[in-house]
Amino acid sequence: MALRDVHVAGFAQLPNRMNLDDYDEAEMVQEITAKALADAGLERSDVGFTCSGSNDYVMGRPFSFAMAIDGLGAWPPIRESHVEMDGAWALYEAYVRLQHGDVDVALVYGFGKSSLGSVDAVHTLELDPYSLAPLGVDPHAMAAMQARLLIESGETTEAKLAHISCRSRRDGNKNPNAPHADEADADALLADPYVREPLRAHDLPVRTDGASCVVLRVGGGGPRIRGIAHIIDAHQPGFRDLTTSASATKALAAAGGAGGVTVAELHAPYTSQEVILIKALGLGEDVTINPSGGAHAACTPMVAGLTRIGEAALAVRNGAPAALGHATSGPLLQHNMICVLEAE
C-alpha cells in the first residue's frame, strides 16, 4: 500500500546557546511550536497529532515532558505522544501516525539543556548497567577509543579531524542558531593537549541548550520526505565494528538511498563520527556536509537529531534538489535514523 506524501511544512528552533536559563520547559515549547506553526502558516487548531522527544535525566526530574505540554495550549485535549529519545524519533512516530489518513498535520518537538551540567553523566548511565556503567566510562573516552580505531585503520588523521572541527565551527558562526565559537586554524588546534587521546577539545561537541520543532503535513507543499528509516546496532562497543556504522548504512538503504542528495546534515557530535558516517552513507565530495555547523557546533541533547532533519528541510527550501537529515542515539552511533527530503 502506498504511503502518504508527508512534507516538512514548518521548522523553528530556539537558538542553541550555552545557557537558556530563563526558559522553563513549557516556555521553550510554547515559543518554538508557535514559531514553527507560523512558519508553516498553520494554527494550533490545525494540528492533528503532537509528538515530542526529551529525556528526564537530562532535565533532572521525572516526567519533564509532562510539564512541557503546558506550552502547547492542549485544550480541548489533543492527540499526543512522547518518546524518551531525540525528537527525530518523535518525528518518525508522527510520520507513521500521519499514514492513517485521519489527521494531516503533526507537530513535533524536542527540548534539552546541557547547562544543568549532567549530560556526560547521563551518557554513562545509558551504558549496560552490568558491565559498562559500573566502570564510569565517560562519553569522550568512548568516542576516543572509536577515533583511535579509525585513525589506526588509516581512515583519517588527527589533522583531518581538526579540519572538520574548523569547518564546522566556521559554518556554525554563520548560523545564528549555533553558539559563537572561537575560530583557529587547524595547525594551531593540533598543538592543544589531548582531552581523551587522540581527541582534543576541538573534536568534542559544543554542548548547548535548545529546542526545535518541525511541522509535518500531508500535502501542502514544502520539502517532501522521500524516505525515512532507523536501525539499531548491538550495544556493547566490543560487539561491533566501530569504524563503520552498519545501522546507518542499512537505514539509508531502507530510506531509499541518497540519490540526488547534495546536502547532508549529520548528527555527529565528535569529528571522528562525521568521518564514519560519510563512509557508511557513501556520501561523495559533491555533498555539502553540515552547512549549519552540525551537531558538532551545537549539540543540544534530544534536539540535535531533529534539528538535522529541520536543517535538511531548509537546505531543500534553499534550492538543494535533495538533502539528508541524520539523527543518532546511544553510545558510538549505536542507533541511526535517516530522513531523505526532496524538493517537490
Binding site: A121, T124, L135, G136, R148, L149, Y194
Partner: peptide, 23 residues
C-alpha cells in the same frame, strides 16, 4: 584493540591514577 588515555581520572572511573580505558 584500542585505547584512550585518562590523565585526570573522574570520580566514577575505576582507577584513580592516570590510566587507559581500552577495549
Amino acid at each position: 584493540l584500542t585505547w584512550t588515555w585518562i590523565d585526570a581520572p573522574l570520580r566514577d572511573h575505576p582507577v584513580q591514577v592516570p590510566f587507559a580505558f581500552a577495549l
